[in-house]
Design a protein around this nucleic acid. Structure first.
Length: 403
DNA sequence: GTCAATTCACATGAAAGAGACCACGGTCTAGTG
DNA sequence: CTAGACCGTGGTCTCTTTCATGTGAATTGACGA
């Protein structure tokens, strides 16, 4: 007990490193957005007609993760609303299509209706009823609605582009209201996958966000750490290091901020007065680890069992010319079926297992490659894509699940 | 030796089913005045 | 008379199965030099 109270005392006495931890997260909206002046202006121009009661063009925004797309769009939209004030009726609805509440056609509409003050149950109604409700709700008042659809690609991938088609088309039917959309995506090839009709109406304007370079990331981090950290609590070189790491990952500002924040948390936990560069390294490791463990734990049971099979699968060396043994689909399925018997679970079909394996590839936990071995068929080779210590932790987590 | 056909072992696609969840409207039932 | 319980119907959503089609190169076998 003595130790614990000592620890608490120490904790209370230690000077906090953070002054505003929130400033170091992506959800924070800073007043000052460095290196995005041009983009802010362009988005602003696009939306400006709304102030004169016109319909702003639909806009498509591209850019990799952490390039400030979402932040800029929300920022501009908010400013627009502020300037419009009470005189002009502008409403901005921001939806992240990856969120559970909006990742299907039905749920997206339900979300929109709810955020406009209507109320619909989150399941149970036919979809076209929702469309009717939604459009009626919009057209009730003379207003301009700006709909920001973030991560729009995941919506389309799951549900097809029909939603967008209906939404864009509907504008002609409105008597009073106007609806314009901003689609945000990090998939550059996304627009080509769309139905041409949707493409032309939705992609009236396009804007590409370039990635930040290391120097720009540094500016961003300095700006944020001024708000987020107490004075002098960040050692020289820490910001540079975070920026450098994040710049390697295609200039991802989100990553840079995560690094800095987690490094700060680690430093605080160890009770030192300053965030040091070694904390950044630790943060880098911890972020990866947390992400992987999080994914593994949130997977359904069957899927976890398949990953467990991959871990338990030694692979066979069936081709003598191939020096290293590799694991392929058949091995995994064999091991998996064995494990199923052991745990009394009903094994899934090969088709399904194949999909689940591909899913782990998407998460980046494994690397797979489809190879053809000529006469001996075609298969997918699977390799774990984890550092040794993360790998061990995942294995421990899996064993806990299936002990 | 060359070249096209064959063949393997899956990958990949599309469609449809199972089962969970939910809303809505109609009917039944028990409690109340 | 009325509120609440209880159905049946019709809808979405996720996970899965079923059936069908695609695929890339090693191997095979015919062919000609």
């Amino acid at each position: 007990m003595k130790d614990l109270s000592g620890m608490f005392n120490e904790f209370m006495e230690a000077k906090p490193l953070f002054s505003n931890r929130k400033a170091l997260t992506i959800s924070f909206d800073p007043d000052n957005i460095p290196h995005r002046d041009k983009e802010i202006e362009l988005v602003g121009r696009m939306l400006a007609p709304a102030l004169k009661g016109g319909k702003p063009s639909n806009l498509f925004v591209y850019g990799k993760t952490g390039t400030g797309k979402t932040m800029v769009c929300r920022h501009v939209a908010r400013e627009l609303q502020r300037i419009a004030g009470d005189k002009i009726n502008i409403r901005v609805i921001y939806v992240n299509c990856k969120m559970k509440q909006a990742d299907t056609e039905y749920r997206l509409l339900a979300f929109l209706i709810n955020s406009l003050g209507g109320s619909v149950p989150f399941t149970g109604l036919p979809t076209d009823k929702l469309y009717q409700d939604f459009f009626a709700l919009i057209d009730k008042v003379d207003q301009t609605i700006i709909l920001i659809l973030d991560e729009i690609d995941s919506l389309i991938k799951k549900n097809g582009d029909e939603v967008l088609y209906i939404l864009t088309r509907q504008n002609q039917e409105f008597k009073k209201a106007k609806l314009s959309m901003i689609g945000i995506t990090n998939d550059l090839g996304f627009i080509n996958k769309l139905d041409p009709r949707v493409r032309s109406s939705l992609g009236e304007e396009e804007l590409i966000f370039p990635p930040y370079n290391a120097m720009q990331l540094q500016d961003i981090l300095r700006e944020r750490s001024k708000i987020g950290f107490e004075n002098e609590s960040v050692e020289q070189g820490v910001i540079e290091k975070c920026a450098a790491y994040a710049a390697q990952e295609h200039g991802d500002a989100r990553r840079a901020l995560d690094l800095l924040r987690v490094a700060g948390e680690l430093a605080e936990r160890t009770g030192v007065k300053q965030v040091e560069t070694l904390h950044v390294d630790k943060a880098q490791e911890k972020i990866d680890e947390d992400r992987v463990i999080e994914i593994v734990k949130s997977q359904p049971r069957q899927s976890q069992l398949i990953l467990f099979s991959i871990f338990n699968c030694s692979g066979t060396q069936r081709d003598l010319r191939q020096k290293t043994a590799y694991v392929q689909t058949a091995d995994i399925i064999n091991t998996y079926q064995g494990l199923c018997k052991h745990y009394r679970m009903k094994p899934l079909t090969q088709r399904r297992v194949s999909d689940l394996i591909a899913e782990y590839d998407l998460f980046g936990i494994i690397t797979t490659k489809v190879i053809s071995k000529g006469r001996y068929g075609r298969t997918r080779t699977v390799e774990l894509n984890l550092d040794e210590d993360i790998k061990q932790k995942v294995e421990v987590a899996l064993r806990e699940i299936f002990n």
